[in-house]
């Protein structure tokens, strides 16, 4: 009998290990199958492109978040930074401030500069003053959102007929959306940085054991600042693209709750919330899972609130599976 229990134990650990590694992939396939059965149009190529367009902000911001979480931190300011980038660009493009010439180029540059400044602020306070990441980025979350509302004067900034509008809806030959290309690019760059570059090793090392990282000569301050700047930079790109596709920057809703989706994607993807080894592919798949849930709910005419409940449940289940049960 003891033997039997032991055997069961062994199978349980093997299964557990397997789920840890491939759980996200299974959940993804399951959602695809559910959708394919309940909706005959689902497997059409256009639905796929749509999924990739809608998942765009989650996919790329989750990659930024992956760096932050791997380094042992967290960034809850992502959504607000998306908004500030979209808003900044919109006000300059619309020529609302006479101090700035009406220029798309300048709009984009300013959007990136402001976002990077927020990223720098986050990283600086966290690494130099040793402040809790959640507190610092929560501050940025509030300030950046407030700043957006201030510059937009509380109104939705819409724009039309500019070359900027064209970017977000651009389709390449074969009807391939521009978002898909950017997604692929970001995934490849992230994979390269994490797997092949000194910086990637250093980020993970800091997340695994900050004290040992310092003793190995890693400049933890510099690396941490970089990490938060990367996250904000990616958030800015996401904010710009979303506003381009929707022809508007809504200071209240642009990027709202985006940080939660990004954090969830990283968590479901199996990267430890306390830092360390970055899991890239599963993070991307998890980002798509989160979007798929929303789509599944929409396509089946279920109230959107259920999507949130589903997401919550999936996160808790995923994180439970990832957990190390034996110390």
């Amino acid at each position: 009998m003891a033997e039997g229990r032991q055997k069961a134990q062994v199978y349980k650990t093997v299964l557990n290990e397997h789920l840890k590694k491939f759980g996200a992939v299974y959940a993804f396939l399951l959602l695809i199958i559910i959708n394919a059965i309940s909706n005959e149009n689902f497997l059409a190529i256009n639905t796929m492109w749509n999924l990739l367009i809608q998942a765009f902000p989650i996919i790329i911001t989750s990659l930024g978040m992956l760096f932050v979480i791997s380094s042992g931190g967290i960034d809850v300011s992502v959504g607000s930074v998306m908004a500030v980038a979209g808003g900044m660009n919109a006000v300059i493009m619309n020529g609302i401030y006479p101090a700035f010439p009406r220029s798309i180029f300048l709009g984009i540059v300013m959007a990136l500069v402001v976002s990077l400044m927020f990223g720098f602020f986050n990283g600086f306070m966290i690494s130099v003053f040793n402040m809790q990441p959640i507190i610092v980025t929560l501050t940025t979350y509030i300030i950046a959102r407030g700043l957006t509302q201030l510059i937009a004067n509380g109104k939705i900034l819409s724009f039309s007929n500019t070359p900027f509008n064209a970017v977000g809806v651009l389709r390449l030959p074969g009807n391939v959306p521009i978002q898909f290309i950017i997604e692929i690019l970001f995934v490849l760059i992230t994979a390269f940085v994490i797997k092949r570059m000194v910086f990637g090793y250093q980020v993970q090392a800091i997340g695994e054991n900050p004290q040992a990282a310092k003793l190995c000569g890693i400049q933890t301050t510099k690396v941490q600042i970089m990490v938060y700047m990367i996250s904000s930079f990616i958030a800015a790109i996401a904010g710009l693209l979303v506003s381009s596709r929707t022809s508007a920057a809504d200071p209240t809703n642009l990027g709202a709750l985006a940080e939660m989706d990004a954090i969830a994607a990283v968590a479901i993807g199996g990267t430890s919330m306390s830092g360390g080894k970055s899991r890239i592919l599963t993070t991307v798949i998890s980002a798509m899972i989160i979007q798929l849930i929303t789509i599944t709910i929409n396509m089946n005419n279920i109230h959107y609130a259920y999507a949130r409940i589903m997401k919550g449940l999936i996160i808790i289940i995923a994180v439970y599976i990832q957990q190390d049960k034996k110390r």
């Binding site: 090793y201 993970q204 090392a205 054991n209 004290q211 040992a212 000569g217 890693i218 430890s272 360390g276």
Partner: peptide
């Protein structure tokens, strides 16, 4: 406390410096 990066590989641990 001051040495290993527990969830990184032998290779990564050894070559970090």
């Amino acid at each position: 406390v001051e040495g290993i990066f527990p969830h990184m590989s032998v290779k990564e641990n050894m070559t970090i410096t």
